[in-house]
Deep mutational scan, measured.
Amino acid sequence: NQASVVANQLIPINTALALVMMRSEVVTPVGIPAEDIPRLVSMQVNRAVPLGTTLMPDMVKGYA
């Protein structure tokens, strides 16, 4: 199964993503693939992302 990017902490709106904020986990539904974690670093989220939430492409500015 494909691992997705999951929030490792609460990520406030407009926060630039850092490695420590993300982990990979096999979840349903599938979100952003875990292999894209390096690409996500320094991109901003466009909403608050609670701990344990799967990151979806529409949550990250400039990802989709």
Rank of each mutant, 00 (worst) to 15 (best):
I11R: 01
A48I: 14
R39H: 08
V20Y: 14
G31T: 01
I11T: 02
I32P: 01
V60S: 00
R23K: 08
V30T: 11
A7S: 10
M59I: 05
N1Q: 15
A34V: 08
L19I: 10
G52L: 04
P50W: 08
N1V: 15
A7D: 00
V27L: 05
I37K: 05
V26W: 12
I37L: 12
E25W: 06
L55H: 01
P29I: 05
V5N: 02
V6K: 03
L40D: 00
A3T: 12
R39Y: 07
M56P: 01
V41S: 03
L40K: 01
P29W: 03
M43E: 04
T54A: 06
L55P: 01
G62K: 06
P33Y: 11
Q9L: 12
Y63D: 03
I13L: 08
Q2K: 07
V20N: 14
L17Q: 01
N8C: 05
Q44M: 15
E25N: 08
T53P: 01
P50C: 10
L19E: 05
V6Q: 03
P50A: 14
Y63S: 03
K61I: 14
V41N: 04
V26Y: 13
L19Q: 06
A3F: 10
G52A: 12
A7N: 01
A18F: 06
P29E: 06
G52C: 04
A18D: 06
G62T: 08
V49D: 03
N8K: 09
Q44G: 04
R23E: 05
P12H: 10
A18I: 10
V41R: 05
T28F: 11
I37R: 07
I32Y: 01
A3M: 15
G52V: 01
I32C: 04
V30F: 14
V49R: 03
V60D: 00
I11V: 06
A3P: 09
R47G: 04
G52E: 04
A18C: 15
N1L: 15
A34H: 07
V45A: 04
T28P: 00
Q44F: 14
E35F: 11
E35K: 08
P50Q: 11
Y63T: 03
N8M: 10
V49Y: 03
Q9H: 08
S42H: 13
K61R: 15
V60K: 02
A64T: 12
I13Y: 13
Q2P: 15
N46E: 07
M56T: 14
T28Q: 10
V41P: 00
S4P: 02
D58G: 14
A34D: 07
P12V: 06
G62Q: 08
V60Y: 01
P50K: 10
K61M: 12
G31E: 00
P29M: 04
V30Y: 15
Q2F: 14
P33V: 08
L40S: 01
L10V: 11
G62R: 09
I13M: 12
R39F: 11
T28N: 11
T53N: 13
N46Q: 13
S42W: 09
I11S: 00
L55D: 00
S42V: 03
I32T: 02
V6L: 07
T28I: 08
Y63K: 03
Q9A: 11
L19R: 13
L10C: 15
V20P: 10
V20Q: 12
G62V: 04
P12T: 07
S4C: 04
M21G: 03
T54G: 01
A34K: 07
V49N: 02
L51V: 15
P57L: 05
I32N: 00
R39S: 09
V41I: 08
Q9W: 11
M43A: 07
V6G: 00
Q2V: 14
A48Y: 15
L51S: 14
E35I: 08
R39M: 14
M59E: 02
T15V: 07
L55V: 11
Q2D: 14
D36F: 10
I13S: 14
V30G: 08
V30C: 06
T15R: 06
P57Y: 13
L17T: 00
V20C: 14
A18G: 12
S24C: 07
I37N: 00
R39Q: 07
R23P: 00
P12M: 11
A7W: 03
V30K: 08
D36Y: 13
L55W: 01
A18W: 05
E25P: 02
A18K: 12
V27P: 00
S24E: 12
L55Y: 00
Q44S: 13
R39P: 01
V49L: 06
M43F: 12
A7Y: 03
T54R: 03
V49S: 02
L10Q: 12
L17P: 01
